[in-house]
Design a protein around this nucleic acid. Sequence first.
DNA 1: CTAGACCTTTGATCCAGGTCTAGAGTCAAG
DNA 2: CTTGACTCTAGACCTGGATCAAAGGTCTAG
Lengths: 143, 143
Amino acid sequence: MSMTTQIPSLTIGAVAKRVGVAIDTIRYYEREGLLPEPERRASGYRSYDEGAVRQLRFIRRAKDLGFTLEEIRDLLALSADRHRGVKAVKKRAQERLAAIDERIAELTRVRNGLEQLVEACPGHGSPEQCPILRALVDEEPQA
Amino acid sequence: MSMTTQIPSLTIGAVAKRVGVAIDTIRYYEREGLLPEPERRASGYRSYDEGAVRQLRFIRRAKDLGFTLEEIRDLLALSADRHRGVKAVKKRAQERLAAIDERIAELTRVRNGLEQLVEACPGHGSPEQCPILRALVDEEPQA
DNA sequence: CTAGACCTTTGATCCAGGTCTAGAGTCAAG
DNA sequence: CTTGACTCTAGACCTGGATCAAAGGTCTAG
């Protein structure tokens, strides 16, 4: 080996800053098994490398895609399984995609219902004439 | 008045069944100020009328439209304000609509990003070749 | 009368995903 | 050396929207 190549180690604060996440969150992820337990300095300080930074970014991206921490734990395990993992990862991503589509469809239904009400509401007059209030109070939503 | 017209009063359980909501939820809404404190029988049992049923349905519908309980409390107050309330109710509904649109747009963005990844993933091979894993690990999402 | 359903209250618990605290130790700059 | 910023731990607390438990009182059908 070459002479003790100084792989620069990062404190938890440095990692937090780099990734844009709170220190507490990093420790929380570690507790929850999303991040491996890092090396420690003699003082007990956690010591991270670039791999940890990458993994943390992975977690944040996956979260932005709507994966739960539970699912992310799962993805991480899969991504570690060379070759066999890829298939499962794709499957998870497809499931996530389907779930998002469903959520969008649901929101769209609500949205359109609400839009109709807003359009039909004159914005003045008695509450009995307000279709928004009527829709909320009366029997069936669209019946 | 006519001779003590028996307005049939409902127990909390009957109301719960009629609206399709848990008893605990009704008491919770009462505590949270979404439902007025009902009459009580001599025994202390809550005694509801049809108005309460209507108001509870209002709450559930509004919740289905994505209003938070906080916002619903607000809507209820507004709907009680005859005439002046209507304008404010419409405004709230418009705001809600805009918020939903924003949420849909956001989800759609995520959805499309995820779809591209899924389509580009062969479903086998090494993790380094899997665009899903690469996207999660690598630098910029779309860069 | 009694079983069993229903009701009362206060207060605890749940879920995810963190966030904050206290009290103590460590590190880098001046 | 001192200061101030940083980190450590264990564990409590937060949000929203309920949901449940415990311990007791009430109501109704048979």
